[in-house]
Amino acid sequence: MSANKTDATLVIVDDHPIVIEGLQSLLQGEEGLHIVQSFTTGGAFLSFLKEQPHIDIVLLDITLPDLNGVEVCREIKIHAPDTKILIISNHNERSIIMQMLQQGASGYLLKNASGDELVHCIHEVLNGRIALSAEITAIMTRPVQNELKQIPHLTKREKQVLGMIAAGRTSASIADELCVSQFTVETHRRNLMQKFDASNTAALIKMAVEQRLL
């Protein structure tokens, strides 16, 4: 692809040469884009970027043989903060998507996305917008597991006990204050753990905070 002064410069970083060839083929005739170079390791790309920091957009895989995508993203933003990053990956875990966006990526799409979707996401990112493929958008808007769980119904006494547990009180001191037996307090504690499906006290408190019951 011959470069014009107005063309956006693009680099591809993926450890599979066949993927690089596929992306190059898809983008070869795309007006306004100039593929500068491609790399199969994060280290080689970062060395190149330090010498030529004026790259408009990087198509970046997360799984590379030497560095992971998080490290590469972080380094890009240090050495070339204006360079846009579009993640192209097979990883569809919500936590990984969030991590890459938090590290400075401007877009994320899966490798099963269509060519049209790829081109659209590239232009969205170049125009300063966050670009997510349709499948990634569906993953990110899906309620997380904790959100799917109903907020457990607690009795007034269970709420009292929960607050005291969160304050670090022992079952014995809770029993003394509430004028009940320690066995009764332990029963409340077990019921709370079951209602929140918590495996330990720390998990119980964390979930209660998330559900805004503390």
Rank of each mutant, 00 (worst) to 15 (best):
M1N: 02
T6N: 14
T6L: 11
D7G: 08
D7I: 10
L10M: 10
L10G: 01
V19W: 04
V19I: 10
E21W: 11
G22D: 03
L26P: 03
L27C: 06
Q28G: 11
G29N: 09
E31M: 11
Q37T: 11
S38M: 04
L46A: 11
S47D: 15
L49D: 15
Q52E: 15
I55F: 05
D56I: 03
I57D: 03
L60M: 05
L60A: 04
D61A: 07
I62D: 00
L64P: 02
D66S: 13
N68P: 01
E71K: 01
I78K: 15
H79V: 15
K84G: 06
K84L: 07
I85V: 14
L86Q: 03
E93F: 09
I96Y: 12
M100A: 08
L101R: 04
L101W: 04
Q103W: 01
A105K: 05
S106T: 00
G107W: 00
Y108G: 04
G115V: 05
D116N: 07
I130W: 02
L132P: 11
A138I: 01
I139F: 13
T141K: 11
T141F: 03
V144C: 09
I151R: 11
P152H: 03
L154S: 08
R157T: 14
K159R: 14
M164Q: 07
M164H: 04
A167R: 07
R169K: 07
S171A: 15
S173L: 11
A175C: 13
D176K: 11
E177V: 01
L178Y: 12
Q182F: 14
F183M: 15
V185H: 08
H188N: 12
N191I: 01
K195S: 07
S199F: 02
I205K: 04
A208T: 05
E210T: 12
Q211F: 15
R212Y: 02
L214C: 06
L214Q: 10
